[in-house]
Write a protein that binds this DNA or RNA. Sequence first.
DNA 1: CCGGATCTGAACCCTCCTGTTTATACAGGC
DNA 2: GCCTGTATAAACAGGAGGGTTCAGATCCGG
Lengths: 205, 205
Amino acid sequence: MPDGTAEIRKGRKFDQVLDGATEIFMTEGFERASVDEIARRANVSKATLYSYFPDKRLLFVEVMKRECERRAKEAEDFIDKSFPPKQVLPLAGRVLVDFFLSEFGQQSFRMSIAESGKFKELGQRFYDAGPGLIERELVPYFEEAEERGELRIEDKILAAHQFAELCKARIFPMTMLHIKDDIPEGERATVVSEAVKMFLARYGT
Amino acid sequence: MPDGTAEIRKGRKFDQVLDGATEIFMTEGFERASVDEIARRANVSKATLYSYFPDKRLLFVEVMKRECERRAKEAEDFIDKSFPPKQVLPLAGRVLVDFFLSEFGQQSFRMSIAESGKFKELGQRFYDAGPGLIERELVPYFEEAEERGELRIEDKILAAHQFAELCKARIFPMTMLHIKDDIPEGERATVVSEAVKMFLARYGT
DNA sequence: CCGGATCTGAACCCTCCTGTTTATACAGGC
DNA sequence: GCCTGTATAAACAGGAGGGTTCAGATCCGG
């Protein structure tokens, strides 16, 4: 075992291929993306590509795996548990909004939804890196804040999801359905601010 | 002009084709659905199908148009504006939840998201029949309720979207990503009930 | 029962895509 | 400078799907 990455992979242009595949899959989706296009974008021959990945599906799964892990790691620990909700929630909400309004957030959501039927494990993986992550981050915070008397929540898991959904109000469907491509600064701030207000009106002390 | 439907259509098995196409598109999505399969399901020859619709894309657009109209009509007037929020909101929420958990709701959402990039007008149409409809139904109700002193809402449009999003908490992502296929009665009721509680905590009087 | 419109089925063309193969170029270690 | 493993380009096989065509069956109004 020459190096640490104990995976079934092979050679040297591996990441190059994955990067190219990520780009193409993100803009085209699974069906529309062609292997030739991926190889071209990755500056790699199709033969090389197929020497790493047995087929297109596996390549796709690998792309989504990596991307989910990457994003999940990025998003962790953006919460300082010792601060009160009035400070933590606006920040968390803003991170959330900016994420799912980003090109990457949009596309991975789109693709996960479109292909989760075909690749059963994929839906689970994206869920863990998305809604699941939010749950894992917020629930412990709610618990600490409740001990400090700053919140009072019976169903903390539901509350975490409610907060996340509130942050999508009016903007998420719009971008998801390509009604608008960009949401201006002001609108993002408003939505987050109103989400926090509503959340605290219900669970605040 | 022989009949009222002033469209560019033709013959007699028109609806048969549309019905079959709807079924296939709903279960397969645009890309995966094959014209042969649609013709087979519709008990119609491919030649007939192509005598009505110039190509697959147009057929798809027509299916989505009809389905959006159909659902929009079904969903109208389920609100009795004279009742107080405590009664109206649970009902409205329940209709919402049952809709987007239905096989049809799920699939049309999935498809609209997946294909709205390719068919620009489609996103708009689905938006009007979905989030747009909610807005058009709830905002006038909020206004009347506010006049009666039952609510106090500055941004009524945002509030309508917030309520809709609250109804999705914890259940919508799960079904969308195929984590769970059915949401039991109890969970639906809980989510709606908690959505209403939160909404009234913020905007109730 | 007749005649024109509509529908059928099956073959067909063409394009595109996945996946394979082969002969060639190139790289770095010894 | 040679040798081995890797990358390349390009062509190819196999198949699927969209769209067309046409001779014949079928329907329906008159």
